[in-house]
Lab assay of single mutants.
Amino acid sequence: PQEEYKKRAKKALKKGDEDTAREALKRAGLSPDQAEEFIRRFL
């Protein structure tokens, strides 16, 4: 589910792994723009 992928993305970002985070967010159904926004907000 979407929440699970978002959790995964946050874990990846904590490790500084933005590529894995983007992949997880893409799987969560976010557009690339939404994924970038999510990452920017998190960092």
Rank of each mutant, 00 (worst) to 15 (best):
P1D: 14
A12P: 01
K7Q: 13
K6S: 05
P32M: 10
K11D: 15
P32W: 11
E23L: 08
Q34C: 09
K15F: 10
E23S: 07
D33E: 14
K14L: 15
L13F: 02
D19P: 11
P32V: 11
G16I: 02
I39W: 02
D17P: 02
Y5T: 03
K11R: 14
K11L: 13
F38E: 02
S31V: 03
A35L: 09
S31H: 06
I39L: 04
D33W: 09
F38D: 00
F38L: 04
E36Q: 07
A12V: 03
L30V: 04
A21Q: 00
K6I: 15
D19Q: 13
K10M: 15
F42E: 07
P1L: 15
P32Y: 10
E36L: 06
L30S: 01
F42P: 01
E3K: 09
R8G: 04
A24V: 13
K10L: 15
I39K: 01
D17R: 06
K6M: 15
E18V: 15
P1H: 13
E3G: 07
R40Q: 10
E4K: 10
E4V: 08
F42S: 05
K11A: 15
T20R: 08
P32L: 11
A12Q: 03
Y5K: 03
L13Q: 01
K6W: 14
A12C: 05
R8F: 12
D33N: 08
A24L: 15
L43C: 11
L43A: 09
R40E: 07
E18A: 12
Y5F: 13
T20G: 14
E23V: 08
K26R: 14
L25P: 00
R40F: 09
G16V: 02
E37A: 11
P1R: 14
K26T: 10
I39M: 06
E23W: 07
A9Y: 02
G29Y: 02
K7S: 10
I39P: 00
A12Y: 07
S31Y: 04
A21D: 00
G29T: 01
K11P: 01
D17I: 03
R27M: 15
Q2H: 11
D33S: 12
K10Q: 13
K15Q: 14
A24N: 13
I39D: 00
D19E: 13
D19F: 12
A24D: 09
E18S: 10
R41Q: 13
R27D: 09
G16Y: 04
S31A: 07
E23I: 10
R40C: 09
E3S: 08
F42Q: 05
D33H: 09
P1S: 14
K11Y: 08
A9R: 02
E18R: 12
E4W: 13
K14M: 15
E36T: 07
K10T: 13
E23G: 05
D33F: 08
E37P: 00
P32N: 10
Q2G: 10
K10R: 14
R41V: 08
G29K: 03
A9V: 04
R22E: 01
Q2T: 12
F42G: 03
